[in-house]
Computed example of a mutant assay.
Amino acid sequence: MTDRRRTYIDIHVLQTVPPSNLNRDDAGSPKQAIYGGARRLRVSSQAWKRATRLAFKDELGIPASQLGTRTKRVSTMLAARLAERARLTAEDATRLSNALLAADLKVAAGKKAEESAYLLFFGRSQLDAIVDLVADRATELTALADDALTKAVAELPVRAQLTGKHPIDVALFGRMVADIPALNVDAATQVAHALSVHPVEIEFDYYTAVDDEKSREEDAGAAMIGTVEFTSATLYRFATLDVHHLAENLDNDIDATIDAVRAFLRAFVTSMPTGHQNTFAHRTVPSVVSYMVRTDQPVNLVSAFENPVRSKYGIAAQAALNLAKEVNRTSTSFGLTPMTVSTVWDPTSLDVIGSEQDRGHVAEATQAFGSACGLDESIDATIAAVRPRLDGSAALR
C-alpha cells in the first residue's frame, strides 16, 4: 500500500521556441549545458520560477496584500506601516522598524533606513502582524534611547510572525535564509532547469540602427551597431508539486491548497522568461503538457532525451514519442506508474514521423499520455484526482 499522505503532481512540458535568448549568462550568451555528450540550450530553474511566480499571482487573482514579496527593503516597508498605524514620524518609525528587525534580519538599528542582510520572501500580512506587537506602545518605545529600545523589543516574538501564516506564494515557492534556518520555508515545488532535447548552436544577430533625423546629404552609416546572441530549441521542462507539503505550509487549509495547485498548474505551463522579449517576441505555447499524479515519488523524465533528438521529420514530434516511451519504461521497469495522467497533446502530430517502426509506436504514445485534452480539462481532471486525497476520503492505494 502507498501512503495516502504522499501525493505529487509531475508536470512535463515540451515547448518549441523560435530564435531567442530567454536566459543569458554573464557574457550575454544563452545559457547552455552538456547533457548526453551534446551541448544543449538551458533555461535556469530560477528564471522560469520567477516567470511562474509572477504568472501565479495573476492566476490567483487575489489582492497583493494577501501575497508575498521578495525584497531587502523589509525595514522600509515595516516603517511605512508603523508610521501610518501608530502615527509616528518617518524618523521614529525607521528607528523602531530597524530595532524590531535587528536581531532576526541583521538590519542595523538607528535612524537611517537600512536594507536587510537577506533578500527575503515574506508576506505583507506578516509585516502587519509585527506592527500589531508594538502599535499600542509605539510612541513610548520610540522615546527610549537606542540601547534601551533594542533591549525593550528584544523579547518580542518578531521571528514567530515571519514563520507562520504564510501567504500562498511563499508556501508554494518556499524561502531560504542560510544563516537563520528557523526562517526557512521548505518549498512545496521543485523546478528543473529546462533543456533542449537536441544539440544547439549559438548564433549571432548583427543589427544596426539608423538616425531618423540624419539628412540625405550626410553619410549613410548607421548610428549604432551591435550583436546579440540567440538560438532556437525544443525544450523539455519539468516541475513537481508536493501537494501534502503545500497543505502543511498553508496550515492544512484545503481550499487554499487547491487554489494554489490550480494556479500553479496553469502558471508553470503558460509562463515564459522575458529575456530579450522585445527583440525576439519568443512567446509560444507548448506542444505537449502532461500532468501525472503520483503517490510514490516524483519522476523527471529527462532521460528520454539523453540521446539527443535528431530527426528530419521534426524535433517536437520525435521528442513527444521519446517522452511517451520513457513514461512507459519507468512504469514497466521500475513500477513507477502514475495514478492518473492527463495530457494536452495532438496525436496527429506524430503522423509526420516517417519511420515505419516509429509509426508502430503511436499507440505507445497514446498508452502513456491517454486521450488528448484541452488545458482546462487537464487541470480539472488533475484537481479531481488530488482533492479527495487532501480531504482524506480516498482509500489507500
Rank of each mutant, 00 (worst) to 15 (best):
R40F: 04
S349M: 14
P347H: 06
G354R: 12
D251Q: 10
E326F: 03
T71G: 01
T89A: 11
T150A: 12
T231R: 09
L96Y: 10
E229V: 01
A319H: 03
T366V: 05
K325G: 03
Q190P: 01
A247T: 04
D380I: 14
T227P: 00
L162P: 09
R359H: 03
M272H: 12
T139L: 11
V191L: 02
V228I: 15
V43Y: 13
R359G: 01
F204L: 15
P308D: 08
D351I: 00
H245S: 06
E326L: 06
D104I: 00
S303W: 04
L265G: 07
G164A: 15
A317W: 05
A267T: 00
V269K: 07
L250W: 07
D136A: 11
S75I: 05
M224H: 15
I383M: 13
S29L: 15
T89S: 15
D136N: 11
R5K: 14
Y313W: 12
L101R: 02
T330M: 12
T52N: 00
H166C: 05
W48S: 04
A108N: 07
S44P: 07
H166I: 01
F305K: 08
K325E: 00
R387M: 14
A384Q: 15
D10H: 09
M1Y: 10
T348M: 09
E213M: 09
E155V: 13
K106V: 05
N322I: 00
S303K: 11
N252M: 13
Q32I: 13
S355Y: 01
A368L: 05
A188P: 00
R262P: 02
I254M: 12
A138T: 03
Q318A: 10
I315K: 02
